[in-house]
Write a protein that binds this DNA or RNA. Structure first.
Lengths: 335, 335
DNA sequence: CCTAGCACTCTAGAATTTCTAGTGCTAAAT
DNA sequence: ATTTAGCACTAGAAATTCTAGAGTGCTAGG
C-alpha cells in the first residue's frame, strides 16, 4: 500500500466516522491536490485489498472491518484531551473521600457523556474476594404469621456487601444461628468466597456438632446463603446506556430491540470482561458481542481494586478519542 | 346510550385490543343480527359522545381514551384465571423460605411473562423504615497509599440493607468510629431513617463529646453516611422490561426511544407509586407518565411489607386479564 | 327504527419517472 | 508510469401517478 493510499484510507475512515455517509472521491480532492480520478483509482486498489467497501455499485466508499482494523493499528494518532475533559475527570479522581471503585464508575459516566457512547464497568469476579465478616441480624417478627425473619449480611475483604433476607424455620434457634455466625467469623475470615461452602462442611460442621443443637439445619442455612452470595452477579454498572438509542445504525426497531436485549442480558455483558492489560480495540465480529459495535476495553488494577472498563459504540467510533480517554483514566488510577 | 350501543362499544374495544386494527361495521354484523348500516349509525352516535375515534374519514373506529375508560368502569367483566396461571403464582407464593417481598417480585415477573406487559414493583419508601443496626467494618488497608477503608452497613427493621464504602481520614481513629457506631445502635434503634441525622446531631453528639476524641469528624462521618442511605433510591424492580419493545405502537424509533428513557429514569418511575388500595386503572393521559400507555396499579400491605405493584402496557391492554391477575395477587398476599 | 344502495373518501401499495451523486474505464497528457 | 479529463453507466432517493379495496355517510324506502 502506497503512502498516499494510507493517507487516503485514514481520511476516509475519519470522514466516515464524522458524517456516517459513504465518502466520495470528489470530496477528497482538496486534501490531496489531485483529481478525483486519481483518488478513485486508489480507492479501487484499497477496495481490492479489502479495506474499503461499497454499499452499492455507485456509492461512495465506507471502511470495511479490516479497514477500521488497519486504521486503529497503524494510522490513528492519539488525540490530545481537552483541558476541560481532563478537569472533569480529575476533580472526581482527586476526591479522597471516594473509594476508588466509585470514582471510576463516576468517571466512566462522564466519559459516556463526553463521547455519547455507552460505558460498562465490570467489577472483579467475586470468587477472588475473601470472607471478611458475616452477620445475622434478626428483624421484627412478622405479626400475622409469627415467622422469624433474619437478614444475613456478608462483607468481603474488598468491601462488597451482599445480603439475603430469609424466613427461618421454627426449629432453628436464633441464638444458635448467631453463635454459629460468630464461629464462622473466627474460623473462616480470609477464605476465598468460593471455598467457603466447602470449609463450612468440612471444618465448621464437626466443630459445632456439640455446641449447637440443630447443627445440621444451621449449617444448611449458611450453606445456602453463601451459595446465593457467590451466585449473585458481580457488579456491572452502565453509564449512558440510552446513548445506544441515538446510533443511526439502529434506526430499524428490530436491530435496536436486539441490541437492547443484549445489554439487558447480564451473562452476555459479562463476557466483555477482560484481563488484557492494554487498552484494546475490538471491532465488529471481533467483539463476540454484536457484529455492529466496537468495544474498547481495558483492565485496571490498583492495589485491591480491579476491574474491567469498556466503552461500547458503533463501529464508526471515534477511536482516537476513546482510546486516549481510557488510557488516561487507566494510568491515573494505577499511578 | 342505548343497550345495543353499550354492547357495541364493548365489542369494539375488545376487538381492537386483540387485533390492533380499526374495527369496521361489517365485521360486527354477525354478532348483532343487524345490518352494517345500523351498526354504522350507532357507531356515529358513539363517536358523537366521544367514545370512539377514527384515524381518517373512511377507516374503522378505534376506542378513544374516554371509550376505554367507559369500558373499564362499566363494561368489562373480570376474566377467569386459568388454572395454569394460578398454579404458577401459587407455587411461588406458598414457598415459605421466600420472604414476602421476594415472592412478590417473582410473581410480577411471571405476570409479565403471561401478559407480555412490563411489571414494576416499587418498595416502600425508605423513610418509613426505622434503624435496626449500623455496623462499621474495617477492610484491608490500601497497600499503596496506606489509606484506611471501612464499609458502613445499615440494616433497617424491614430488612433493607444499604452499604457505603469510604476512605477515612487519618485523624479519625478506627476504634472510635466503631465505638460510636455501638453507641448509635444502643440509642437510636427504632428511629425512622429520616429522623436519624437530626437525633445524631442533638443526642449523640453531646453524649460522645467526652468519650470520643475527634467527635466532630466522627459525627460528620455518620451524618453523611446516613444522608446517602436515605437518598439512595428506594428499590424499583422491573419485570419484562423488554416487552415494551414489542408494542406495535412503538414501531417508530423516536417514540420507542422516548419510552425507554422514561423507564430508565427512576424519578419518573417512582411517580407511579400509589397508596390507593384498590386495583386502579390509569389510561393514557391519566397515567401522568406517558400518554400512550395504560398503567394498572395497586398497593399492598401485609404486616411489615408494603409496596406498589404496577403493570405498564399499551392503552389497548387486556384490562380484564390484568385486573384479575393483580387482584388475585393482592388478595393472596394480604390474606 | 332499520336497511339497501350508492356516492364518496382515504390508504396502501405498485409502477413510473426524474434527478443526482457517484463510479469505472478509456484514451490522452504529463 | 502516473495522472487526468471525459463520458457512459448505475443505483438509489424522491416525486408522481394509478389502482384496488375497505370503509364511511347519507338518502330514500321498507
Amino acid at each position: 500500500m502506497g503512502d498516499r493510499q494510507e493517507a487516503l484510507l485514514r481520511e476516509i475512515v475519519e470522514a466516515y466516522i464524522q458524517t456516517f455517509k459513504p465518502v466520495s472521491s470528489k470530496s477528497l480532492v482538496d486534501l490531496f491536490n489531485c483529481s478525483s480520478a486519481t483518488i478513485r483509482n486508489d480507492m479501487a486498489t484499497l477496495e481490492d485489498l479489502g479495506y474499503l467497501e461499497k454499499e452499492h455499485t455507485s456509492s461512495g466508499r465506507i471502511p470495511s472491518e479490516k479497514g477500521y482494523r488497519y486504521y486503529v493499528d497503524n494510522l490513528m494518532h492519539p488525540r490530545e484531551l481537552t483541558g476541560e475533559d481532563i478537569l472533569k475527570l480529575q476533580t472526581i479522581l482527586s476526591n479522597n473521600q471516594l473509594v476508588v471503585s466509585d470514582a471510576i464508575t463516576k468517571c466512566m459516566e462522564i466519559i459516556s457523556d463526553i463521547t455519547h457512547y455507552t460505558s460498562v464497568v465490570i467489577g472483579p469476579s467475586k470468587s477472588s474476594n475473601t470472607l471478611k465478616q458475616i452477620s445475622i441480624i434478626p428483624l421484627d417478627q412478622e405479626e400475622a404469621t409469627g415467622d422469624k425473619r433474619v437478614v444475613a449480611v456478608l462483607v468481603t475483604n474488598k468491601g462488597i456487601v451482599e445480603n439475603k433476607q430469609v424466613n427461618i424455620s421454627r426449629d432453628i434457634n436464633l441464638r444458635e444461628l448467631i453463635k454459629t455466625s460468630e464461629i464462622i467469623n473466627k474460623a473462616l475470615v480470609g477464605t476465598p468466597l468460593d471455598k467457603v461452602t466447602e470449609r463450612l462442611e468440612l471444618e465448621i460442621k464437626p466443630k459445632i456438632k456439640d455446641v449447637i443443637e440443630r447443627y445440621d439445619e444451621v449449617c444448611n442455612f449458611f450453606s445456602s446463603a453463601f451459595q446465593d452470595f457467590t451466585m449473585s452477579n458481580s457488579d456491572v454498572v452502565f453509564g449512558g446506556k440510552t446513548n445506544i438509542l441515538d446510533f443511526k445504525e439502529y434506526s430499524e426497531p428490530d436491530k435496536l430491540k436486539d441490541m437492547i436485549s443484549k445489554l439487558e442480558n447480564v451473562e452476555l455483558v459479562k463476557r466483555i470482561e477482560t484481563d488484557e492489560n492494554d487498552v484494546n480495540v475490538f471491532i465488529g465480529e471481533e467483539t463476540e458481542f454484536d457484529p455492529d459495535v466496537t468495544i474498547i476495553k481495558t483492565h485496571y488494577q490498583a492495589g485491591n481494586d480491579e476491574g474491567t472498563l469498556a466503552i461500547i459504540g458503533p463501529k464508526r467510533m471515534e477511536y482516537d478519542k476513546v482510546v486516549t480517554l481510557l488510557n488516561f483514566l487507566k494510568n491515573y488510577i494505577e499511578k
